[in-house]
Amino acid sequence: MATDTVSTPGESPDHVGDPRRRDFLNIAAVAFPAVGGGIAVLVPLVNQMSPSADVLAQSTTEVDLSKIAPGQGVITTFRKQPLFVRNLTPKEVAEADAVPVSSLRDPETLEQRTKEGKKNWLITLGVCTHLGCIPLGINEGDNRGKFGGYFCPCHGSQYDTAARIRLGPAPKNLAVPDYKFTSPTTVLVG
């Protein structure tokens, strides 16, 4: 075809030189739907694995604080994960405040982890930041570890009275979810 000087209609003559418009149109016409179609198929196939709306809908939890005396804690659920709500004693608050923040693996003060004026209400997820076990310490009589907070039995992570990681393999403090006080004795988590 290279020596052919007559081009047939609908075919790209080789001697016209680059870029050959018809080839470009051919490639573009095939590539565009192929890539677009590929993405259009892939997105639902990948996205079906994400949490569905009904899972996301269980996204808030209300907790009544009036029954929790100082020194006590309750375990409830938030998004199907355990939620720790603990009423710290003044001694526990003082212990948490006494720790120099710079010495911590995940530096945060108790103020930053609680709401203003509600420093005794420590609300965290009960999910160890190592591999997701539930630490002990929310119920009375549990092993609370060396620092009086929480102790994870799986791999030995120890948290202090502000639920900050102090010893063991966990990289982060117990997570504090978004929450707000809707009344002096009620919080809405999520």
């Binding site: 694995m49 994400s50 949490p51 569905s52 899972v55 998004r79 199907k80 994960q81």
Partner: peptide, 17 residues
């Protein structure tokens, strides 16, 4: 992790997949 489990903790979605 949340994508793999289809939720924040193992549940129906994870079990089925």
């Amino acid at each position: 992790r949340v994508w793999l489990l289809g939720g924040y903790a193992p549940d129906d979605a994870a079990l089925n997949r």
